[in-house]
Amino acid sequence: MAIHSVICVKQVPDTTQVRIDPDTGSLIRQGIPSVINPFDLHAVEAALKFREEQGEGGSITVISMGPPQAEETLRKVLGFGVDRAILLTDRAFAGADTLATTHALAAAIRKIAAAEPVDLVICGKQSIDGDTGQVGPGLAHRLGMSQVTYICGLVGIDPEAGVIRAWRQLEKGRELLEAKLPAALTITENCNRIRYASLPDLIAAADKPVEVWTVDDIEVDRTKLGLKGSPTRVNKIFAPPVRERGEVLVAAESSAADAAAKVMDRLTEQGLEMGLAG
C-alpha cells in the first residue's frame, strides 16, 4: 500500500536560552538560535519507517507554518529523504494560538490531499516553546481523522484492513489502539530513534524546492486565522516566581553528621514528623 504521509513540523527558538528581560518584562529573543522542534524529528522518523515498510510508491510531504526563515527547518527535513516541502507563510497567520493554527494547517492539508490523498498526518507530541501538545489532536479533530496521540510504539499499518495499530502511553499503563485510516498521529520521543540522514539523501535535498504557500494559496475563512482568529490572548508574561534562598550549611566546615543533625533540627522545627512516618 502506497502511504502518503504529511508531517507537520515547527521551527522553535532553542528554549534553554529564552529569558525575560528583567527591566522590560518582554522576551529576549535576539541572538537565540532557531532549531527544529526536537519532537518533530520523531514524526519524521515515523513517516520514513512507514514508507520503507510499505514499499514502493509511498511519499512524504512535510509542512510548516512560520516565518520565511522556517525554510531552514524544512530543508533539514528534506535532508532525511522527504519528498516534498511546503512552507505556509503569511502575515495573516502571525500570532495564531493553537486553534487558529489548526485552521491554517487543516486548510493546507486539505489542499495537499486534493492532489494526492493523505493517509497519515504525523506531528511531534508537542513543541518545546509552547509545550501545549494541542495542535496535533486539534488538527485530527478538524480534519475528521482517527485520532491517536502520544504514541510510544508503532506496531504498523495493516493495508488489508486499512488500519494502523499503535501503543500509546497513559499515566497508569499502555494501551494498544487500532485506528482506521486516514489517521492523525502524535509521536513521543520513546517511539523511535531518529536516524542519521545519509549523505546521498542530504545531497539530493539540495535540489528539492521548498514550496511557499500564502493565505491566497489555501481555502480558508480568514477571520479564523492569526491573532484575530485566536480565542486566547496572552495577558501577561513574567519570570517564574523564585523561592527565597534558604539556609545553606557547608558540610566540610563541620562534619556531615553535624550538618545532618542541624538540618533535621530545622525540619523538625518546621513540623516534619519523621518519628511517625516510618
Binding site: 557547608v250 566540610a252 556531615a256 545532618a260 533535621m264 519523621m274
Partner: peptide, 30 residues
C-alpha cells in the same frame, strides 16, 4: 540552593548516610 529552604554543601556520599543515621537515631529516641 537558590530555591531550597535548607541546603547542605558537601559530598553526598557522606551527607546522605549521615542523614539516614540521624533519622534512625531520632526515630529510635522517639
Amino acid at each position: 540552593f537558590d530555591i531550597a529552604d535548607y541546603g547542605i554543601v558537601g559530598d553526598l556520599f557522606e551527607v546522605v548516610p549521615a542523614l539516614i543515621a540521624e533519622v534512625k537515631k531520632r526515630k529510635a529516641a522517639a
